[in-house]
Structures are given as structure tokens and as C-alpha cells.
Design a protein around this nucleic acid. Structure first.
Lengths: 145, 145
DNA sequence: TCTATAATGAGAATCATTCCTAATTACACT
DNA sequence: AGTGTAATTAGGAATGATTCTCATTATAGA
């Protein structure tokens, strides 16, 4: 395995929750540990096929998410649309982890400038050419009992 | 209509592309203009029902995206998973608009500190309590012909 | 080893999204 | 206003992703 330490940490976490660290679940975490970005169920299936059928894979993902080993990159698998920035203005997002709503925030110029500067610095560090950016802030909105 | 100026800008853009600004399309843009964050097709449908059937709604979304009036909040409607940050470390994302891949970037500490400071400032401006954040940088990765 | 419980495999069911085709509508021109 | 043409829509069928169900298998502990 690529990363024994990581694997042991996961094993520990699952043990604490009384959940087994089975072959299929190991296949998922180890594929994700090797990946260099978030992967979809289909992409994972391609990587670890044919050892795990899709239905089991989805179950493994759900279990691993439940115990906090995995996180979904942008919650639900539905497309959400918004007006383009030339219409709505440049903004960022507040993502509520409790109710799933996403709210826009427009930042005052001095904060926005600092973000833009950061993005440019990151671009100059890599071979990636940034054209736009969005700061996604997760937390809880003020609307819950 | 809530926002006549905006509506005229959209009308103009569609006219430039030789595309009609029909009742159904207006219903979509005006609902999005009123919304305070990105909406899914189902949410939009709920808002403007029963004037527009779902299939037409999807087509409107596609057309409006094509002419640059709408943008999807996080591309494809598939869930992608990654290891939680306590396992993978805190990182941000480079989203390639050409091929759809998402790569992780881990930032050097001085940059990360600047982002954290920003997020805290934003939190203090609103009723939202941030628990985590991710900077999503869109652009093109270095891998295309 | 035996038993109770957790996990898997395979396929059916569900939900979001896309596709298809005929009927309708808007637009340009008379 | 009336007509021809192309764009658009409605509605339902088809697809693809995800979830559910249930019979079977594996596991941990008595």
C-alpha cells in the first residue's frame, strides 16, 4: 500500500465507530490516496474494477463519508446555476453545512483585491492558468434553531 | 420585473446571438436574479411552476449557459469524493474548464495564512460562522494541445 | 465451532437529465 | 393583417447516476 500510516489512521477511525475496514473500502481509500484530486464513483470504479461492483462502491462511499474519512467535493450531485458574473457581479459563496443552501457574498474591494493577488501568485507557482476564482466558505448560516 | 436593466442586458446578449428571449427563458433569469445563490433545475422549477415544464426548463438552462448568461456552479452533476482534510491535509482546487479535471493544490504556509485571515474577516462581517474554506481556481491546466 | 451481525453482490427502482418528435409560436416579409 | 420559415416548446421516452432490496457471504466474539 502506498501509505501505511494513512491506512492505519483510517483503520483506527473505523474501529472506533465499530465499522469494518473491508477489502472494498480499502480499495476506495487507497485509490483516493493515490489520486491527485477528487474522483467520482465512475472514475473510482474504473480504477479499482473489477474488484468492486458499482452498488458496493456507492455503499462504501456513503459509509466512509459517514465516519468522516471522505468528504464530497460539493455536496449533492445536482447542477446549480447562477447568473454569469458580468450580470450578477463577482462574488463568493457561503455554503451552509446544515441546510445545504448556498448564498452569495460580494466582498468589499480591499478584500477582493487580496484574493485576486493570492490567485495570481498561485497561478505563477504552477502550470495552471487561472481565469476566474471563487472562495467557498463552509460553515453554518444564522438560520438554524 | 425586478430588474429591468439586467433584463435589457440579457435581451441584448441574446439578440446579438440571434436567440430569442422567450417567456420561459425570462422566467429562469428573473428567478435567478431574485435568488440569493445558485439554484438547481428542481428548485427553479418549483419557483416558476407551472409555467414551464421541466424539459423546457433544462433546455432554457442549456441555451442560457451557451450564450454566457448563466454559469453552472461546479460543472458536472456527479459527486466527487476526496479524503477528508485530517487525512489528506488542507488544500485548494484547480478546476480545468477545458477537461473538467480537478487537482488539489497545497499552499505554502504564508499564502494559506492570508486566506485564513480573509475568511475570518468575512465571517466577522456576516452572521455566517465559517468552519472551513476552499479556494476554487478555474482556468486551464497545462495539459491541452 | 456456532451464532449474531455487518457487509457484499446483483439486479430492480428511483431520480436527474437529455433526447426526440410533433405541434406551436415568433419573426420577417408581403 | 396574412403567410412562410425557422426557432421554440410540450410531452414523453430514453439514458445515466445513484439508491434500495434482499438473498448470500464474511467476520468477530461467545
Amino acid at each position: 500500500m502506498t501509505n501505511t500510516t494513512l491506512d492505519r489512521e483510517i483503520e483506527q477511525r473505523l474501529a472506533d465507530r465499530g465499522v469494518r475496514y473491508t477489502r472494498g473500502r480499502k480499495a476506495v481509500t487507497s485509490a483516493l490516496a493515490r489520486a491527485d484530486g477528487p474522483l467520482s464513483a465512475a472514475e473510482l470504479h474504473e480504477l479499482i474494477r473489477p474488484s468492486v461492483p458499482l452498488s458496493s462502491l456507492y455503499r462504501s462511499l456513503a459509509v466512509l463519508e459517514e465516519v468522516g474519512v471522505l468528504i464530497p467535493h460539493f455536496g449533492q450531485a445536482v447542477s446549480r446555476y447562477e447568473l454569469a458574473e458580468w450580470l450578477a457581479g463577482h462574488h463568493h459563496h457561503l455554503v451552509c453545512l446544515e441546510c445545504g443552501t448556498v448564498d452569495d457574498v460580494e466582498l468589499p474591494e480591499h478584500l477582493e483585491k487580496r484574493i485576486t493577488a493570492l490567485v495570481e501568485e498561485i497561478g505563477s507557482m504552477t502550470t495552471f492558468s487561472p481565469s476566474d476564482h471563487s472562495l467557498e466558505i463552509e460553515g453554518t448560516c444564522g438560520r438554524h434553531g
